[in-house]
Design a protein around this nucleic acid. Structure first.
Lengths: 175, 175
DNA sequence: CCACGATGCTTGCAATTGCAAACGCATCGG
DNA sequence: CCGATGCGTTTGCAATTGCAAGCATCGTGG
C-alpha cells in the first residue's frame, strides 16, 4: 500500500503502451529490448534492470523517475512534474489560453479515468463544459519515513503481479 | 570480460562511503548486499541492478535519484518547470493527447508572438489545432519522435562513464 | 612469534537477466 | 483455401548478477 494504486511495473508499462497505441514489438524496438523480454516484463515475469527500465521509459516518453517510482525503486515523494502547475506558472500565454489548456488537460485526464484499462482512447473533444480549473491537490505528505526493516533482497519473484493483491514489498523476514 | 573501465557509479559510491567514514563491509551490511559484491561494484566490475542501487543509496543516506543520475540511468533534467516538459513527462495522458496539448500550447505561443505580446489574443480555439486528434495526427510533432535504428543494449561493460559525459538521450529539444 | 580482529579482494557457484528462434493466433490478400 | 503479415507468448540458451567461502594484508597485544 505504498502507492495509491500501483499494480506493478509491468502493468504500468503495458498500460502506458496501450495508451500510446503502440504494439509490444514497437515499444521493444523503441526501447532497444527484445520483444519477448518486454512481454515478460509487462507480465511481471522478469525484473528489468535499471538500464532496461530507463530505455523503456524513453520508449514510452515517460519520465524515468516515474518508472522507477512505479517499480518501487525510488521511495522519494518528490512532487511530480505537474502539468497544471506548469501551465499556471507560465506567463507566456494569456489567461484565456491558460484556461483552455487547463480545461483540455483535465478533460483528457477524465477521459482516461473512464476508460483506463484496455480502453479505446478516443480522445474525443468532448466539449469542455466550462473553464473549471479546480485546484489540484497538492502533495502534502509529511514524508513519514517508514521504510520496512532492512534486510537482504530476498525477492525471488519478480515485480509481482499478484492477481489478488499487490505486494511489491519484499519480505524482509529472516532468521 | 568485465572491462576495468572507470565506473562512475562505483567511484561515486566509494567516495560517498569514504566520506561517511564507514568500511566497505559496513556499507554492504547497511545496504543489504554482500561485501565482495559491493567491492566489485565500487571498482566498476559489476553493474548493480536497480534494487541494489536503491539499497546502496539508502545505506549511504543519499537520494536514490542521485545514484541513478550518477549511473546515467536518469537524465539529470527531472524537476523541470516548463509546460512542455511537464506535458512530456506526464504519464497520465496518452501519447496522442500529449501531442495535442503540445500542439495547442505551441500554437498559443505562436499566436501571441504574431499578434501582439499584449493584445490579449482572443485565443481563437476553433481556428487552431483544437483537441481533435481523431485523425491527421499521425506522428509529426515538435518532438520529432523518429529515433534511428537504435542498437540493442549490447553494452556488456559496466556502468563506466564516457570521457565526455556520454548521454543516451536521443531527444534533446528545448525551446 | 602468533592469535585476533578489521579491511578489502579473489574465487567458484546458483539464480537471474536478456535474447534469438520458434509457436499459436488473428487478419488481410490472391 | 493458402500464403503473408503482425500480434503476443513460450522455449532454450549464453552471459550476467549476486552471494558464500576463502585469501591476503595491516594493526594491536599476549
Amino acid at each position: 500500500m505504498a502507492l495509491p494504486k500501483v499494480g506493478s511495473i509491468g502493468e504500468y508499462i503495458r498500460e502506458q503502451r496501450k495508451h500510446a497505441k503502440i504494439s509490444l514489438r514497437q515499444l521493444a524496438a523503441a526501447a532497444g529490448v527484445s520483444n519477448p523480454y518486454l512481454s515478460q516484463i509487462e507480465r511481471g515475469l522478469r525484473k528489468p534492470s535499471a538500464e532496461i527500465l530507463n530505455q523503456i521509459a524513453k520508449g514510452l516518453h515517460v519520465s524515468s523517475r516515474a518508472l522507477y517510482v512505479q517499480a518501487g525503486l525510488i521511495d522519494e515523494r518528490e512532487p511530480e512534474s505537474d502539468v497544471l502547475a506548469a501551465i499556471r506558472a507560465d506567463h507566456l500565454i494569456t489567461e484565456r489560453q491558460r484556461q483552455v489548456l487547463i480545461d483540455i488537460y483535465e478533460s483528457f485526464r477524465k477521459e482516461n479515468r473512464a476508460e483506463a484499462p484496455a480502453g479505446e482512447a478516443q480522445t474525443s473533444q468532448k466539449a469542455h463544459p466550462a473553464p473549471e480549473p479546480r485546484e489540484r491537490d497538492a502533495h502534502s505528505s509529511p514524508n513519514g519515513e517508514a521504510p520496512p526493516p532492512e534486510g537482504r533482497l530476498t525477492a525471488f519473484k519478480p515485480y509481482a503481479v499478484s492477481p489478488d493483491g499487490g505486494d511489491v514489498t519484499p519480505e524482509s523476514k529472516e532468521g
